[in-house]
Design a protein around this nucleic acid. Structure first.
Length: 309
DNA sequence: ACCCAGGTGCTGC
DNA sequence: GCAGCACATGGG
């Protein structure tokens, strides 16, 4: 085992932040995390964290996995500075989110695992995502005694297009199969994503079946180490609309929509979908400009805070 | 019965 | 570009 003492590190918050799915609390303060064909047990008491692995394995994998070389205190100070004073609604929200989420780290997970995990994540709730991923691991993953590794592209592809039936994957079955086949055909190595620019990485990921802008950004942020990526999902849309648009802007959008639809009450989803993806990107560019380079960290803060309520 | 979930692909303007 | 819809499955 290997012990470290560190600030701004909270395993429970990380587990519940929505960026990782195979991460479990086995008893209070004890956790097990799976990544690819690895498994790690950890214990935390305050700032003291014990990694149940050799120092070598810590150095070559887990230190980077947990982003332990980054100074998160710096980002937190930046937020404190930026949100000081002001009665600004968005900044107030950000301040609360930062306070709640201090201790979250952006994990550097296996890129292939992120591709498949976030293809599965679409139109699903997190508990259901976890179940699907575990079922996938049990069927196609390498067996290590009483647990399974994450399946390779080859294992999934060679089972054929019907090999994924019975795992509650729904329409994502086809995406997962096709993505596995293309991953092999391209001879792509997930690890090489890190050597690409963020723009190129995102563009390339979007050529896979079932991967659009949002999933590509999740893969970039949680697997590629691109900390400026900012995945926009339904929760983020809600936050951006609610906290980062002025009352005047909201009134205008709602009035326009009512004129077009003619109805009195407009479902929240319809309202949020009336703003194009680029519209949300504009809001982000403005509201999060002080965090250039680490916007993804802030994205996780607000996402985790929002979904904890 | 209905609505929603860490969206994407396809169609038609 | 952008709006509208279909796409499975499980849970409130």
């Amino acid at each position: 085992m290997y012990k470290i003492n560190t600030e701004y590190f909270d395993l429970k918050r990380i587990m519940n932040s929505g960026q990782v799915f195979r991460f479990y609390e086995t008893e209070p303060g004890s956790f097990t995390v799976y990544s690819g064909n690895r498994r790690l047990e950890l214990h935390q008491q305050g700032n003291e964290v014990t990694f149940m692995c050799s120092k070598v394995e810590y150095d070559e994998y887990w230190e980077s996995y947990f982003d332990l070389k980054r100074d998160y205190g710096k980002v937190i100070k930046l937020a404190a500075q930026n949100c000081k004073g002001t009665g600004d609604k968005g900044k107030l929200f950000l301040k609360e989110a930062a306070a709640y989420s201090a201790g979250i780290r952006i994990l550097k997970q296996d890129v292939w695992e992120m591709m498949i995990s976030f293809i599965i994540s679409q139109q699903k709730q997190i508990p259901s995502i976890r179940k699907c991923i575990e079922a996938l691991c049990e069927r196609f993953g390498e067996k290590h005694g009483d647990w399974y590794g994450f399946p390779t592209a080859k294992a999934i592809a060679s089972a054929g297009p019907d090999g994924l039936k019975g795992l509650s994957l729904g329409y994502r079955e086809r995406y997962i199969y096709e993505t596995s086949v293309k991953y092999l055909a391209d001879g792509f190595d997930g690890g090489s994503l890190i050597s690409m620019s963020y723009e190129d990485a995102k563009k390339y990921l979007c050529t896979f079946s079932g991967i659009g802008e949002k999933v590509a950004d999740c893969v970039c942020l949680f697997g590629g180490g691109f900390t400026d990526a900012f995945p926009i999902d339904v929760h983020i849309k809600d936050i951006l609309y609610r906290e980062f648009l002025s009352d005047a802007e909201k009134k205008k959008i709602e009035a326009d929509l009512k004129r077009r639809m003619g109805t009195v009450d407009i479902p929240r989803k319809k309202l949020l979908d009336s703003i194009p993806y680029t519209g949300y990107q504009d809001i982000i560019d403005k509201a999060f400009s002080p965090y250039k380079g680490v916007r993804g960290i802030v994205q996780q803060w607000v996402f985790a805070f929002e979904t904890s309520k």
